[in-house]
């Protein structure tokens, strides 16, 4: 049996981290959790995840910075950004590295699940 698809969840809100862990369990994915961008970046390098789901507003390093660090490392790596502020959508297009998925809180598990499965499918051929 192959190794489980691993998702790094980065959010300073415990509520979201716990929920995402449950969602990942539901879809059969493994979860690694980080409480801010800095920890997320550290765990990204240490745990070799397959996908990152990150909040935007966080202490130490925000989600946009984390996204940019990851993409500089591997531009094909898939990152989903989530946020509690809904004024981000237009701004993300202007980012040097746009995210592969974007969801506003509160999001529907159905939508997140669909997005994760699509990106997981795209990741299957990763080296």
């Amino acid at each position: 049996m192959g190794k489980k698809f691993k998702i790094l969840v980065v959010d300073d809100e415990a509520v979201t981290r716990i929920l995402l862990r449950r969602v990942n369990n539901h879809f059969g994915f493994e979860t690694v959790e980080a409480e801010d961008g800095e920890e997320g970046w550290k765990l990204f390098k240490e745990t070799d995840p397959d996908l990152v789901i990150s909040d935007i507003y966080m202490p130490n390093m925000n989600g946009i910075q984390l996204l940019s660090n990851i993409k500089k490392c591997n531009k094909n790596f898939k990152v989903i950004l989530i946020t509690g502020y809904s004024n981000f959508h237009g701004m993300l297009d202007m980012c040097l590295y746009p995210p592969d998925g974007f969801l506003e809180k509160p999001f529907k598990i159905e939508d997140l699940g669909r997005l994760m499965k699509t990106l997981a499918g795209n990741c299957e051929g990763k080296d």
């Binding site: 809100e13 509520v15 979201t16 716990i18 929920l19 449950r22 969602v23 539901h26 507003y57 509690g84 502020y85 809904s86 506003e104 809180k105 509160p106 999001f107 529907k108 598990i109 159905e110």
Partner: peptide, 18 residues
């Protein structure tokens, strides 16, 4: 309000969906 309400709503809505 949006930030403070949407975060707990993630838990309420998501867990209800699960």
């Amino acid at each position: 309000l949006q930030h403070e309400i949407n975060n707990p709503l993630v838990g309420i809505m998501g867990n209800a969906e699960l």
